[in-house]
Design a protein around this nucleic acid. Structure first.
Lengths: 233, 233
DNA sequence: AACCCATTAGGTACGACTTATTCAAGAGTC
DNA sequence: GACTCTTGAATAAGTCGTACCTAATGGGTT
């Protein structure tokens, strides 16, 4: 998922991005383009392009006569999906999952409220379908199927909110949900209460009840946060 | 604020980014690296680095034998501060300001609630100081001074929330507030009610009252949204 | 302490070559 | 004759290496 050999650029970028965001190259450490070119056995051109991209993500800073310096964490573009993926793959996944889940708990209730006002008939139908899909896959170790429906469900809500910024958070939510399923040792079937809440949320949106949609989504968020507290200290 | 001549790369990137996000190069249009190199009178090297950065923002897609294609809006990295700046400088600033303000109205109340729990004594002090600064500059056409305090105030709240994702939204909020002051023809002094709310929010955070902090911030957000409705149809 | 200069590593430019796509022309089939 | 399939030439991005420019740095000189 992280790297293919579809181009030298991609490979170098992904490797460096991962090393930096995993803390392997701590803030302040200096990279030299020539060394990188040697290390990856690519031309300086490729390295420079990679550095420029990392620079645009504020992961590094390139200064003459000094080299490419890793910048402090506070300046990262933490909303860049690529950065999120790197960080989720790295060492502090727990911390990252937590802050992203808190973000979700702030955004999604509001988005759900808006969705209840703006969702089209088609979106309502697809939402219901996904909720039913979650019910159908909620028992018997069908975690992957459940995950797919879960992601699609939340994506629809965010899109239906009609707000561009919310809609673009779909990828982030997808990463969080996938991370939770794949890495948080989720042996068991999903919490039945959560499944019910999703069904009820679909109903609330369909019936155009913003208050209910917001309230129910808050409950879902509380559940997700609680789950984090239980599974990760 | 947008562009300096601090490097060819920066200039080309900024110009192209602006042209693309302002819809001047609509999605689907194709750019050729050689043409760009000619147009900006720079080497292909520089153009390629710029294209790579635009690609990392998902503004364009570079394919062999076809050129650099502008991607549809839905794929932009709309959380990238650079993209936000370009879009706010472009044609659809109103739409952009609205969706960003809605985002704020979702995030900031939650952030304020967390800030009331986690803010350090120092942060509380600075918050109060900024609130007083807002009061002091709220009358007599001191819009720039007011703006500075306003930005600092919201930044502190977001930082004090202790959540990294919230904290990194400080730049976005700053852009929104600056955009509002500079472009929304804000002849008059700020709304006294809003000033009062900021003072009360500082108090609530200092006294560690999350519910009050959240409630007050919601009121501030409602005011901001209402202001948009009045000034921009 | 202030100044100057050599060193260093990134910034830019250019030219050559490679590779993936595309598009169109031509061969083959029904 | 219309259609599909193959093939090959044209094209624009991808990669590379080198040469040179420029700014920041650190040490050495006054």
């Amino acid at each position: 998922m992280t790297t293919q050999s579809q181009g030298l650029h991609t490979h170098v970028l992904d490797t460096l991005g991962l090393e930096i965001s995993s803390g392997q190259c701590p803030p302040g450490s200096v990279l030299r383009t020539d060394e990188l070119a040697q290390r990856f056995d690519v031309s300086r051109t490729v390295v420079r392009e990679v550095v420029r991209v990392l620079e645009s993500m504020h992961l590094v800073e390139s200064r003459r006569r000094v080299g490419v310096t890793v910048r402090p964490t506070e300046t990262w573009n933490v909303y860049d999906p690529q950065v999120i993926r790197w960080r989720l793959a790295g060492a502090d996944r727990p911390r990252q999952l937590r802050s992203l889940t808190v973000l979700r708990s702030a955004i999604e209730p509001v988005a759900a409220g808006l969705a209840a006002r703006h969702a089209t008939a088609e979106q309502c139908a697809e939402l219901t379908e996904r909720a039913l899909g979650m019910v159908a896959t909620s028992r018997g170790q069908q975690l992957e199927g459940y995950l797919e429906h879960d992601i699609a469900f939340h994506r629809i809500v965010l899109n239906a909110s009609g707000n561009e910024m919310f809609a673009r958070l779909g990828d982030v939510v997808a990463e969080v949900l996938a991370g939770r399923t794949h890495h948080q040792v989720m042996f068991e079937d999903p919490d039945p209460a959560a499944v019910t809440l999703h069904v009820r949320l679909a109903e609330a949106v369909r019936e155009g009840d913003p208050e209910a949609a917001e309230r129910i989504t808050k409950e879902i968020a509380v559940g997700a946060l609680h789950e984090l507290d239980v599974l990760a200290p």
